[in-house]
Design a protein around this nucleic acid. Structure first.
Length: 147
DNA sequence: ACCATGACTATCG
DNA sequence: ACGATAGCCATGG
């Protein structure tokens, strides 16, 4: 668990944002960072997930936070110290219908064009504005990475 | 308390 | 186009 209250707030924001990623979709550490208002700290987003408790009794844990739906900006599952980690993530994604391909170096890749999820703001926050706004003008591009 | 490390990225050479 | 660099900052030694 985080040592400071500030960190705890940040962790909570990240976990909640990750929970809004739809089943079968993926996004990036950087995008989550942007969604929670700290676009300069994608790395800390990674730390949050790294420290996500496995303990089911924790408020946020591996069961209620879809950590596997967060990958890096290159569209690959971030390699970590333990190879089993990325392997495990690849399996979790495939289990929910995400196609994971093998890169030249054996990395696990996901196609953003098909599975990417990059909203401008969190759906929960969009809902608030939607209720206040009245026009019906909405249509930001769905996703758009790698031209 | 200081130093190294890391589930990252945008920028520069 | 690809490798190196610079910000980030919570954790762990």
């Amino acid at each position: 668990m985080p040592r400071s209250d500030d960190a705890e707030a940040f962790f909570a924001a990240v976990y909640q944002a990750v929970r809004e990623i739809p089943h079968g979709k993926v996004t990036t550490y950087g995008h989550i960072a942007m969604l929670v208002g700290t676009p300069q700290r994608p790395r800390q987003v990674g730390l949050c997930l790294k420290h996500l408790p496995t303990d089911p009794s924790a408020r946020y844990n591996h069961d209620n936070v879809p950590w596997q739906r967060v990958i890096n900006a290159k569209g690959e599952i971030s390699p970590r110290s333990q190879p089993s980690g990325s392997l495990n993530q690849a399996a979790a994604l495939q289990a929910e219908g995400v196609t994971v391909t093998n890169g030249a170096l054996g990395e696990f890749m996901v196609d953003f064009a098909e599975f990417g999820w990059f909203p401008d703001i969190l759906p929960s926050e969009a809902a608030e504005e939607g209720g206040r706004e009245l026009g019906g003008e909405e249509d930001h591009s769905e996703n758009d990475e790698q031209t």
